[in-house]
Every structure is written in C-alpha cells, then in structure tokens.
Design a protein around this nucleic acid. Structure first.
Lengths: 337, 337
DNA sequence: CGATATCAAGATATCGATATCATTGATGCA
DNA sequence: TGCATCAATGATATCGATATCTTGATATCG
C-alpha cells in the first residue's frame, strides 16, 4: 500500500501552470504565455479563450519563474537604516513618510517594494531586487558604502554627500532651509538667534551652515545649542538651560517641530512672550505644529514628493539612464511664532 | 565583423552562477550548492574552498531561481489598505507603527516584507508571497474578502470579525479599552460621559460597545458624538458643538489622543477645568499625549507587540500550523486628565 | 502560376538553483 | 578475500515561465 497523495503541509492549493492551461485550451504553453501577456502574436479569438480559461480556473502566474527567465525582479528594496546608536524602535515616523510617495510611484510603475532593515543577517533579499532606496537618519555613511559595493542602482535619501559610483542622493535642501530661517529673523530685526539641533547629523549640519552663513552676512553670530533628541522634552530642557545660563536671545531656530514646540512651552513657563520676546521657527511642518497654540512657523519639507522623486530616480537608473542627485526646495511657512 | 559583447543597458555586473563557481573550484554545481548551504554532505575542506571562492568573486545567489525550485518565496506581503473614502495620503502613521514589529519579526525569521497598497493593478506581486498581512483602517471587509479568496495564509489587523477560511484576526481589545475608560469614569463619580469617535469604524464601534455596556451596569447612558476625523481640529470642534447645544457633560472618552487633546484645548478655551470639571481619556498613548499639558490619560495599545504578533501568526500559518485569532490587552494609563 | 509576405502557432533551449538517485573509492567486518 | 557500509561527489531531472527559431497555412503580387 502506498500513499498516492502526500499531505502537503504548506500550501495545499494546487496552482496550475501554463502547461496545464495549455492542455486545457488545446494549445501550446507558449501560446498561453502570449495570450496572457496580450501579445499581438496570437489570434484574438485564441487569446480570449485562453484568458477566459485562466480566469475560470484562477490561474496565477509564477512570479519566481518569470523573474528567473527575465533576469529581473521588478522589485526595489527600501532599506530603513537608522542611526545604530539609538537602540530605540527603528521606526520614527520620519522615514516612513517618504514611504508613501515611494510606494505610490513604484507600484504604479509595476514595481514592488521590498521593505528591509539592515539587521537582517543576509543581504540575499536585497540582492534579489533591481535597485535600492536607502533611507537613513544621518551618520550612516558606512551603510551607504556597504550597499554601494553591491553594485546595484541605488538612491540615498539625505544630505548631499559625494554620491558614489552607483548611487545618487536625493534630499531636501537643508542649507536653503537654514538660510530661510536666518533671513526671516534678520527681516524682523532679531539680533540674538539660537540654533537647536544636532550638527553631527549631516542634514542638520547643512541647516546650521545655511543659518550661520546667512546671518554672517548681517554680522550676526548665532548661538549653537546641541540636542541629540528631537522630542518635546528636549526642547523644553534646551530653553531652560539657556535661561539658567542667563543667555540673552530673541529667536530660536529648532531642527524639528517638536523641539520648537517644547521650546515655546518652556518660554511661556518662563514668562516670555512668543513671538514678541522670542521668535521661533521649527522644521518639518508637521500637522501638529500647524494646530499648536500659537501656530508654529516652520520650514516645510515635502515628504510625499521626496518619496516620489526617490522612486523615479531608482527606476531611471534601473532603466539604464544616467540620473543626478537632486535637492528639493524647502518653504518657510510663517505662522504666528 | 561581429559584436562579441553587446552593450548591457541595465546591469553591467556579470553575476556568476553556481556553475561558474563549480568550474572554478573543479567540482560540480551540486557540490557548490551544498557547500554554500552548509550541508554536512560535503567534506569540510571542500566546503571551505568553495566558500572562499564565493567570497572572493562576490558570488550572489539568484533568489528567483531558488524560489522557483523550492516553490516558496520567503516573503510576506504587507498590504496597507486604508479606507478608500479618504482620498488623503494613504499613510497615516497608525498602521505604520505596526510595521516596526512586523518587519523585525519577519526579518529575524529570514523572511522579507513586501509592502503594497491595493492600488496596484495586479495582484501578481502579492501572489508571489508566502503569506499576507492586511493592515487596514476599518470598513475594509471587501478588501478582506478579496484577498481571502487568494487562498493564501493571511492575518488581518483589526476588530475581531468572523475570521474567514484562511485568515485570522489580530487586534487590540478595543472592547476592553472602552470598558476601562468607563470604569475609570464611574470610579471617579462621573455621571455624564461623552464618547467621541466614529462607530462606523469596527474598531471604534467595539470601544463604544464596551464603554456603553460598562456604563449601563451603573445606570449611566453616555452621549455619542460622531466624528469622522481624528484630528486635533475635529476634537476642538466636537467640544464646541457640545457647548453650543448646552449639553451637560463631565467626562469625555475620545477615540484618539489627538481628538482628546483638541477637546481639552476647547474646554480650556471655554473656561472649563480639566480634570476638575471634565475628565478626559484619549486612545493610543502617543508620545505627544504624554507630554501634553496637562498630561493626557489614555488607553494604550502596544503597536510594536501587535506587529510581532501579526508576523508570528502568519509564519505559523505558513508552516502549516493552525492558529487562532487573538486580541491584545489594552492598558488604561491614568495621567492628569 | 510561382515567389514571397504575413499570420498563427509550435519546438526547443534556457534562466539558476536544488531534489533525487547513482556512482565511486575507502573502510569495516567476518 | 568477499561483501556490506559509508562518506563524498556527480548526473540528471525539475521548478514554470519566456526568447528564439521554425513550421505550416494562407494571402499578395508581378
């Protein structure tokens, strides 16, 4: 006595193949393939018949087989690489906002998004992709180099660094953001501005440079206040430390909206008026900042658009075109602070 | 004169195969395959030699070929399906928080995450996966049915509905969340509570039911205030409408922290004291609520853990085990409101 | 009418890996 | 010595799709 049919532990659904379909339709595999891919090489009547059969039996294309034959996977790996120092959850909302645009653009181009963090032991999944989008939060040059040597099309989000052999960089124009903030402060007559942020982070460093340079044009030298965290608490604490040190200041440029809101809260506690005594500009234009009281002035980055741009650039690279790094404009949104 | 080598537009890197490696090592393909997969069937010395060669030449496994042969992709499709009504960006942070746990768990199990929205014309990419995780925001029963008939292992995030043939449901215990809020209000002597949220959304409906039922045990009937949006503005507006209608109330259970914060802001504007006149409980325990003034009481859902659970359940299904739907406990976090 | 396009479909090879069965030489044991 | 056992490796078939080259039938043209 023999087992005629083994128990199938994994996927009991018996998928039928093109060969099966071919037999059912009384044609060859290749004709089925052509019919399903709308090739003009098959008779219209045949095509209809095959397609109807495929629908009827719930035929599913075996993507692996097709990928193998075509030598491409129609997949782009999106690697979310955060600064390894912060052992916290890898999922600050920031890089995720880009994901919207990325996913939208890739999907509509017929590509899939393979989401990865670096922690994965193997790079096998990444190598299966046709290209790479690397999202990181500063200080990840080692990651860039690591993936760069895979020799795959790659686009990195961030501050414009050199841009290696295979990869290019897309990011928002942080320097311009810093300049805008400086211009605003100058135009409303502030003379003692403070910068709150973390210059070790390349993107923030750009903001700082823009800020400092523009202010220098007007003979102003801002105070740099380092903060590693971009939370509300960190902002509160930052302003308190300024107050403790009896520092005189009349403007704050913070590297995130949360930081800015924290700062404002601390200022109010200290009896300072915003924006009369101290003017505050945040960064990111989060929805929260807009409905904060008072509504927060901020530098806007368009994440959605950034994601779309990232996607377009990888796709272009995959299609063999030469593409260039690009910085996206930032906008100063002046509200009440 | 003939072209001996065509220009390769896409990927100029000539990947070498196991066959190449075999030739280099003077063994057969199979031996290479075995050596690279640490099979005990090859001599240790041979294994080392092959592996060294692979490293030296930067050999990359062709994942498509392996997937084809092994008839599995080691990939789980994560489908982010939002309520189609809201034409807004599909990327509220909510489902994305789950992504952290999902990605972490799947990656460490050697699986990849294929990220998708439904908008993609084809389901081909999804069908290439070994399983599906469906993240949605209420009112997506049609989506569930759609993917259910693919006959693949599937886990859905949300309120426990029937749970179809192939899929099970994981979510947080919204009903319990509602009960906790009710208990709290009762225990501090509130008699006129209001519920703000959207009962069309299954998860919110559960919260409402729990809330209503528990209050009923104490002879209290809450007021239901429908709000479709979960923003700060919506919360503000909700309280104003209550005030306009001269409704008497002493407690608010809001379906999101933002809603709650908006409500508090409106209450303060109206000269009401929180929590003396009106007690407020939010939902989600966002970091923002914790640092709000006054710090917000809220019902906490553990997203990270939810993601992990989702991932574990699909994997179990993929491995042929029978798994069951599960609701995760919620915690009432009592702060100042 | 014969030669040549044109159209529809099929035969075969191939993508790169792994499962299965077969082979080889060395060793153990009676 | 003879035969079973075992360790290491190889030959071959196979996963399911598509590219390339053919084939056969029909249409077109000078």
């Amino acid at each position: 006595m023999t087992h005629t049919k083994k128990k199938q532990p994994v996927a009991p659904r018996a998928n039928l193949t093109m060969a099966d379909l071919a037999e059912l339709a009384g044609v060859s595999k290749i004709t089925v393939s052509r019919a399903l891919s709308e090739s003009p090489l098959v008779n219209a009547e045949t095509r209809e018949r095959v397609q109807a059969l495929a629908r009827k039996h719930g035929y599913k294309l075996n993507v692996s087989a097709r990928n193998l034959r075509l030598r491409r996977s129609h997949t782009v790996a999106v690697i979310v690489e955060m600064k390894p120092s912060s052992g916290r959850t890898m999922w600050d909302p920031y890089p995720l906002s880009l994901l919207g645009g990325i996913s939208q653009e890739l999907t509509s181009a017929g590509y899939s998004v393979l989401l990865t963090t670096r922690q994965g032991a193997t790079d096998a999944p990444v190598q299966a992709a046709d290209g790479i989008i690397l999202l990181g939060q500063g200080a990840h040059q080692d990651a860039v180099r690591f993936y760069d040597r895979l020799g795959m099309p790659m686009v990195v989000w961030g501050a414009a660094e050199q841009g290696g052999d295979n990869h290019i960089v897309v990011g928002s124009d942080n320097r311009q953001g810093g300049i805008s903030a400086a211009e605003r402060f100058v135009s409303i007559g502030r003379r003692h501005p403070v910068f709150i942020g973390n210059p070790d982070h390349p993107e923030m460093a750009q903001r700082l440079f823009g800020f400092v340079d523009e202010l220098a044009n007007h003979g102003i030298k801002p105070l740099l206040l380092r903060r590693a965290e971009f939370t509300l608490e960190s902002g509160i604490e930052a302003v308190r430390s300024l107050s403790d040190r009896k520092v005189r200041f009349d403007a704050i440029f913070a590297c995130s909206d949360l930081l800015a809101m924290g700062a404002i809260r601390a200022l109010v506690e200290l009896g300072q008026s915003v924006p009369n005594d101290v003017s505050v500009i945040g960064y990111d234009d989060t929805p929260l900042g807009a409905s904060f009281l008072p509504p927060l002035s901020t530098v806007r980055q368009n994440w959605q658009e950034g994601g779309v741009l990232l996607a377009r650039k990888v796709l272009a690279q995959i299609h063999g075109q030469t593409v260039q790094s690009q910085m996206m404009a930032t906008t100063l949104v002046v509200r009440a602070t």
